[in-house]
Design a binder for these strands. Structure first.
Lengths: 227, 227
DNA sequence: CGTCCATTTGAGGTGGATCAACCCTAGTGG
DNA sequence: CCACTAGGGTTGATCCACCTCAAATGGACG
């Protein structure tokens, strides 16, 4: 992992200007918490599985994938983290997934120690951490249902609706990730993802302008497909 | 859902005798928290998906499954809860999975409101809730890898090692759940689970004394199979 | 304009699902 | 105490959704 403190891109800013809806909101107001900014190039590792969890991160710009690997290289992406999302929050001492920048990405990070310090005296801080962890758990529970029981088409429909909700601007979404990432998120191969998207395109449910620029033309239909 | 307060089986006990390793440990010491005991018959629903989350539960005796359903009845069990385990802990207002007793089961429960009250003033309580939620998240992350990327045999091997760790006594485990439950936990059919177990039996990796009494004869081999 | 990688599309294979008996065993009632 | 029954479990045969392997196409960038 790159060491943030050695980077020329580092700057120090005080947390305390929480925007509405900011996931850092609950902890941002705490005096004394200092956030550092840092940037990662496409495909750069932010932290590795089982590495010490010394920082907590928030995406400012770009996109991050967190995943687990099996010994033979099979990969399961647990979540995509988009601007505003917090990731890398752990209860134990180490990270349980690897985090990588999907595209050039900027993150804000705070020292885990200082967060623990703040949490020791401020109930609102711990409460904020609890809510963020509970959000991750909710996502994981929904995703277990998808991975264990949904068909390929249902998985892709669910994915499209999730991404539409999280990153659509003006009815259009620009996916940061490739087909292989989508497959590894949905428990499918990249070919199966591609075929499902092609079929949805043929049926007029979505439109492409470039493989990663997608506009949903029939959300209702898609909701009906996600089981 | 049955209403605990109407049950004849109800009794009131003060939390405060935390055993070492008790998952309730961090919150049990808090003065004023009252736990109620309650029992459920085999297959009884403890709470339903989207019902108000008014209580948090701990298994005393028996076993609980928590699951999500798709509209056509496909089911994904997210976790099995065994004696000592806490379940039903939510950040939002409602439960996100359904909970059912697998066999006759006793639970301890505390009012969510009183927990929130305690959490408001006591950092240790929130911290306890955070740690328990983080444990659930860790399990969910591991399970996503299993559901998305492991083969049937790898899933069953992982399941056996998990149950061995959690409920083996004297090298033997008594599974409380049927093959269908195991399948719905692992994202497989009950037939596939049965075939995998039979194969492991034929290979001498495990022994049966009744379909649900299993003894692992070669844990190392099993660990090698769980990928 | 050419190169490279992502994506699409095609053809064929397969792991696990489905459908269908059959078997075991715990529980029940005679 | 044993025959009967029902529900859980096993096993077999077949099917098919998705994977694998392979090739063609396309789009971004130098």
């Amino acid at each position: 992992m790159l060491t943030p403190s050695l980077s020329p891109a580092v700057g120090h800013i005080a947390l305390g200007t929480a925007r509405p809806g900011d996931q850092f909101g609950a902890i941002a107001g705490h005096a004394g918490l200092v956030a550092t900014e840092f940037s990662y190039k496409k495909d750069a590792e932010i932290y590795g599985e089982d590495e010490p969890a010394d920082y907590v991160y928030q995406v400012i710009r770009g996109a991050v994938r967190t995943y687990k690997l099996l010994s033979d290289g099979r990969r399961q992406i647990g979540a995509f983290h988009l601007p505003g999302d917090v990731f890398g929050l752990e209860s134990g001492a180490t990270h349980r997934l690897t985090a990588e920048a999907i595209i050039d990405t900027s993150v804000r990070l705070v020292k885990r120690k200082s967060l623990e310090q703040a949490a020791m005296t401020d109930v609102a801080v711990v409460r904020g951490l609890l809510d963020m962890t509970a959000d991750s758990l909710k996502h994981a529970e929904d995703h277990m249902l998808l991975l264990g029981r949904k068909t390929a088409m249902e998985r892709v429909a669910t994915f499209l609706l999730e991404m539409d909700r999280r990153l659509a601007v003006a009815g259009m979404m620009a996916l940061p990730m490739c087909r292989r990432d989508i497959g590894d998120y949905l428990g499918l191969t990249l070919e199966t993802v591609s075929r499902a998207l092609s079929q949805l395109h043929d049926e007029g449910v979505l439109g492409f302008s470039g493989a990663r620029q997608i506009v949903l033309r029939n959300r209702q239909r898609l909701r009906g497909m996600d089981a």
